[in-house]
């Protein structure tokens, strides 16, 4: 085969590839565009056959309505605090535990780590009712604490970070011991900073999970001002299940923060999530 015919074959294939990738991209993006366009239409406009593409005018009526129906300010704050604290808790507790499991020796280490592994294997539904009952007994339902409760510690985080700590050379630990550092200093000043990529990945993973989670917030925080964005949206669906322009406005507002972050930090998002997968 001549060089040019190979090149021709490749380019022909590439056209084919571009076509499919672009078609797929369109399918991925279209729902978002349609959501935004619908959020500016009136009910009768949205019910036209054949459908109109652009709204007659970009009224913010639906947005005004949905802001009245759901206390978005609270929803944003609750979601934001939830994400923030979940990340802090996950990183703090999982890092120390991961470091200890990877680099320290103590009796029963293997047994205790099995507990961590076991939690990852067991499906979460098993835990939900009792966790709820504990919160109910503590009278801590409808609070930020209730939202945080299942995420106070993270078995996945521990497991994930441990892989990284195991990849760090033991010599580092020995060297810092010789320098007179105690275990805490070794951890916090030498090893922890070396896990930066992994910590960021864990943070992103935790953020997306906390933001997406609908069932738990819906279960424990029933007052509308204490809900997160996902849970709040679901109540909108219950009451206004077919007022689509308003629902779309709500969905847009709910997606906005994450979308904005993603547009800026896209690379970190993707690589972080990929990292959590490959190390598992």
């Amino acid at each position: 085969m001549t060089k040019s015919s190979i090149a021709y074959k490749l380019r022909k294939n590439h056209v084919f590839i571009y076509f499919f990738l672009i078609l797929g991209s369109f399918i991925m993006i279209f729902p978002f565009i349609w959501m935004i366009l619908t959020s500016f239409k009136t009910i009768s406009e949205s019910m036209m056959v054949p459908p109109t593409f652009m709204p007659e005018s970009f009224l913010f009526n639906n947005y005004k309505d949905v802001l009245q129906l759901l206390p978005f300010k609270n929803l944003y704050i609750n979601t934001g605090l939830l994400i923030l604290f979940r990340i802090i808790l996950a990183v703090a507790f999982s890092s120390t535990a991961a470091f200890a499991f990877a680099k320290l020796n103590f009796p029963l280490k293997k047994v205790l780590f099995t507990i961590v592994l076991a939690q990852m294997m067991i499906p979460a539904q098993i835990f939900i009712i009792p966790q709820y009952r504990i919160l109910a007994k503590m009278n801590m339902l409808n609070s930020l604490f209730a939202l945080l409760f299942p995420g106070l510690v993270s078995a996945f985080g521990t497991f994930f970070l441990r892989q990284f700590y195991m990849g760090l050379p033991d010599e580092l630990v020995e060297a810092s011991n010789l320098d007179g550092c105690n275990v805490w200093q070794t951890f916090i000043m030498i090893l922890f900073p070396l896990t930066k990529t992994a910590v960021i990945a864990l943070a992103i993973f935790t953020a997306i999970f906390a933001y997406s989670d609908m069932m738990w917030p819906l279960i424990v925080n029933m007052e509308i001002e204490k809900m997160t964005l996902s849970a709040g949206l679901s109540t909108l669906n219950a009451g206004f299940s077919t007022n689509f322009p308003v629902l779309m406005a709500g969905a847009t507002l709910a997606m906005l923060p994450m979308l904005a972050l993603y547009l800026v930090f896209q690379k970190q998002f993707i690589e972080g999530i990929a990292l959590t997968g490959t190390k598992a």
Binding site: P31, S46, M214, L229, L233, F244, A251, Y262, F269
Partner: peptide, 24 residues
């Protein structure tokens, strides 16, 4: 392609519910 991963399934479902609406 990764975009749908970062947005909440709750919001995504509402959008698709509208897309799937049988009359409109």
């Amino acid at each position: 392609y990764f975009l749908p991963i970062v947005v909440a399934p709750a919001a995504v479902t509402l959008v698709w519910k509208w897309i799937f609406n049988s009359e409109f």
